[in-house]
Nucleic acid binder design. Structure first.
Length: 573
RNA sequence: GGCGUUAUAGCUCAGUUGGUUAGAGCGAACGACUCAUAAUCGUUAGGUCGGUGGUUCAAGUCCACCUAACGCCA
């Protein structure tokens, strides 16, 4: 038994996430967490909403609500949808929590004490009508290069030219449309992460098991051009964590907040604290997960994220932890994912393109999505969602292979022996071979899971399901029954036990299906099948069961076409 | 312009440190079975591994150059 800390990249608060976001971090993290729990390990699985920054403010303004209220509502929405997908977070926190305020300020203080915070004066556009500074991307105007009239202050979307806000002709605020703008001097704090470059470099070199995708991105940021650049950690905004040096005020920083990228990863830690509070636990209880001087030295920490998040997790956040000079737990394994594309293009939150989490659950139960997404996870490269692939994969794997197996064995038993496990007969060579084969396969399945090889473990799981159909096809109990009912009883008993085995093995992928099958078979959730031969005797003669309803309905061509059409455009938020 | 990732059967993807006839699932064809959600099981066809050149006794697997897609940065 080991202790595993698992975090998923925290989704941004402004709206419901799409399937690409889901498979990029939360879902594979959940798979891993469920697997490790099933193996009897102690797991703390954390996720949260990332709530600060300008996009949240603007989304709230658009919704006509105070930003705090908006975030609270959206957090509840995301929590409910996560529950719908059976994401088994031990806690789903909020980066706006008091714990994260305190910790973020604490880290800033420690970094400042260590000489790792610099102050920089810069010029930024201030909107007098809005009464605030505007981030570059919230300034619009006419592009001096191509004449496009909705160019943003950082870049023209039309001609892709990189811009400075002062380049824009007739610049205006994207918030209010006001053209009453001026450039003002403002002071910001910078994290001098360049000072930690060598330490980070050595640390990353020690992570030989990390995927190439991860290390190559990190290395690029470390070595490209002038090397790792210092980054601003404060902003002139209202919504965020007020800049403080620990618990003390920070002279000259009044009215400023920490930049969202700085406080968001700290929420991983704060979330553990929120978890402890929510469960009536002491600080020591969460610190034993996060402080290597307070009991976390034996914790194995795994982070899940999309590739766009890699720099923050390999450089900026580690720089924060190392720079604090305290004994914080650093990530051991970092699993990053590529993008899932939607029907030839990208999923897009801002454009409302693709299938969103709430919509998906309206169409089909969570297990359908979990299975497809996980078995097609974009691990080695970007992968693609199309309705055709989704339909054929779900129908074939879930309905025909797994669902039909459970259906045929329970119905056969009911018709010949009634709804209880039949007695009599003993194994022959075929059964011995089957058990050997299954033992090997389960072993392989587990090894893939340990290494977080999501697609490969799904492939192996499917092969394990197929073994059941193959077995029934080979021994044909419906034929055996005519001449040797006792032998048919043994074959049927084994078949029912296979259904039990499959339910337990499939739990990380298909939690609801597991519950349904176990309920039909009248068995409690049990531990992982360490010994396959022993496990396949658990349902013994006389044990009663109920024949389950169809586990997975097939997706019809009409449904597919209907959905294809319905989701071909963009979503109106 | 720089850098990175990817390029393997019709489709979606595996191929560990270079080593005998390049694998899986889907789809296709054929056959078997009839317990089951017209489901299942088996067999077969099918790729010289984006292109060119090189290193090596031996390369999909290493090197160089080229092409294409995607991404990041400037």
């Amino acid at each position: 038994m080991a202790r595993h800390l698992i975090t998923s990249a925290i989704p941004y608060i402004n709206g419901i996430k799409h399937l690409g976001n889901l498979i990029g971090s939360q879902l594979p993290a959940d798979l891993f967490a469920r697997y490790l729990r099933a193996r009897g390990h102690e797991v703390l699985f954390l996720c949260a909403t990332d709530e600060h920054g300008t996009p949240a403010e603007l989304a709230a303004a658009k919704a006509g609500k105070p930003v705090a209220e908006y975030c609270a509502e959206m957090h509840a929405v995301q929590a409910r949808i996560a529950e719908g997908f059976r994401l088994s977070f031990d806690h789903f926190g909020r980066s706006s929590s008091p714990q994260n305020h305190a910790l973020t300020q604490h880290f800033a203080g420690r970094l400042a004490d260590a000489g790792l915070i610099g102050e920089v004066s810069e010029k930024q556009v201030y909107s007098i009508a809005d009464g605030r500074f505007l981030p570059d991307r919230y300034i619009e105007g006419t592009c001096p290069n191509c004449g496009y009239d909705k160019a943003r202050g950082d870049q023209c979307e039309n001609c892709t030219k990189q811009l400075d806000p002062t380049d824009l002709i007739d610049a205006r605020s994207a918030v209010s449309g006001s053209t009453d703008l001026e450039v003002r001097e403002t002071k910001h704090l910078y994290l001098r992460q360049s000072e930690l470059k060598d330490e980070l470099d050595a640390w990353i070199d020690s992570k030989t098991e990390w995927p190439i995708l991860t290390t190559s991105i990190a290395k690029k940021w470390l070595h490209d051009g002038d090397g790792l650049r210092d980054r601003g950690i404060t902003r002139d905004l209202d919504w965020g964590i007020p800049v403080q040096r620990g618990t003390q005020p920070w002279p000259g920083m009044e009215g400023k907040v920490f930049y969202v990228w700085f406080d968001a990863p700290i929420e991983y830690i704060a979330c553990a604290s929120e978890w402890a509070e929510a469960n009536g636990l002491t600080d020591a209880e969460w610190q034993r997960w996060w402080r290597t001087d307070k009991g976390a030295e034996d914790v194995r920490y795994t982070q899940f994220m999309g590739k766009d998040n890699v720099p923050f997790h390999t450089l900026s956040f580690p720089a924060t932890l190392i720079g604090s000079g305290e004994n914080w737990k650093m990530v051991d394994h970092l699993k990053s994912f590529n993008y899932l594309n939607y029907d030839g293009g990208q999923f897009s939150t801002s454009q409302g393109r693709g299938v969103f989490m709430d919509q998906a659950l309206e169409l089909l139960p969570a297990d359908y999505w979990r299975w497809w997404l996980l078995s097609h996870a974009p691990e080695s490269s970007d992968s693609e969602f199309t309705w055709e692939i989704f339909q054929s994969s779900v129908n074939k794997d879930l309905a025909d292979v797994l669902g039909n197996f459970v259906s045929r064995i329970t119905k056969f038993c009911r018709s010949k022996f009634g709804e209880e496990v039949p007695q009599g007969g003993s194994y022959g060579e075929i059964e011995i071979n089957l058990i050997d084969d299954l033992s090997e396969r389960v072993d392989r399945y587990a090894r893939h899971m340990e290494k977080m090889e999501v697609r490969k473990s799904a492939q192996e799981l499917r092969a394990i399901w197929a073994c059941g159909n193959e077995y029934l096809q080979t021994v044909a109990p419906w034929t055996t029954f005519k001449t040797n009912p006792e032998r048919a009883a043994m074959q049927t008993r084994l078949g029912l036990n296979l259904a039990h085995l499959y339910a337990v093995l499939s739990e990380p992928y298909l939690p609801d299906t597991t519950d349904r099958v176990l309920a039909s078979l009248n068995v409690e959730k049990t531990s992982w099948p360490e010994d396959i031969a022993e496990f396949l005797q658990r349902l013994s003669s006389g044990h009663s069961f109920q024949t389950p309803e169809v586990l997975f309905a097939k997706i019809t061509d009409e449904q597919r076409e209907d959905w294809q059409h319905k989701f071909s455009g963009t979503r109106n938020p």
